[in-house]
Write a protein that binds this DNA or RNA. Sequence first.
DNA 1: TTTGTTTATTGCAATATTACGATTAATTCT
DNA 2: AGAATTAATCGTAATATTGCAATAAACAAA
Lengths: 111, 111
Amino acid sequence: MGVTRSDLFTQEQNELAKVAKAMAHPARLAILQHLLKTNACINGDLVQELGLAQATISQHLRELKEIGIIQGTIEGVSVSYCINPKKWAEIKALFNGLFDGYVDPSTGECC
Amino acid sequence: MGVTRSDLFTQEQNELAKVAKAMAHPARLAILQHLLKTNACINGDLVQELGLAQATISQHLRELKEIGIIQGTIEGVSVSYCINPKKWAEIKALFNGLFDGYVDPSTGECC
DNA sequence: TTTGTTTATTGCAATATTACGATTAATTCT
DNA sequence: AGAATTAATCGTAATATTGCAATAAACAAA
């Protein structure tokens, strides 16, 4: 009891849920938005920017890296993170696939 | 320790995170997709459809209701749930606001 | 080699989520 | 009224998430 029953759902549902979960934290959204703004940055920046401990940020970065939405390359002593353009587009398409599945009935509301 | 530091983030980041969290479970995505397909249905249907216990589905429905993405009206002995068109559009816009914030650099990759 | 700098990992405490049986509440049917 | 139906709520066990101090690991500079 207490563990998500992934076996009951489609591949797509589980995948989208995983991606949504990765984005379901304000710190991770803040990281993504910061990467959008600067288009590449390092972990240290984020510690200043967000006000969370270094260990916590590193953990959030790992979660984002795990779903592939960001990627990091070692740059001397520090690490440069940036958006993965391909994955970003994929994830955007995943969400839009859901959102565009709804057409406002406009005529004949249900409830 | 262990509790999300919402105070560190913007209103928008916290809001989007809350919405993403509500969608970050395959059962809740399955519920939304089922509502999209049938455009109104009842709790009982979902128990058959998803294979989760009635109490569990009711709990997931409540979470979706809490962020306003679905609404339910009592219909005799059962309850009719459906998408809230206004909120659906709002949430779609929230996500697109994030996704469209990224422009593929194409020239001059960073990492 | 030693020191400093930067990021990752480990370990742990506090809290949140997930699932479900049991119960309750509201309504319909007989 | 009494039985049946449907959904919400309560209580609880199992697991996951969040945050951070402490430590480790990797590299550069002295």
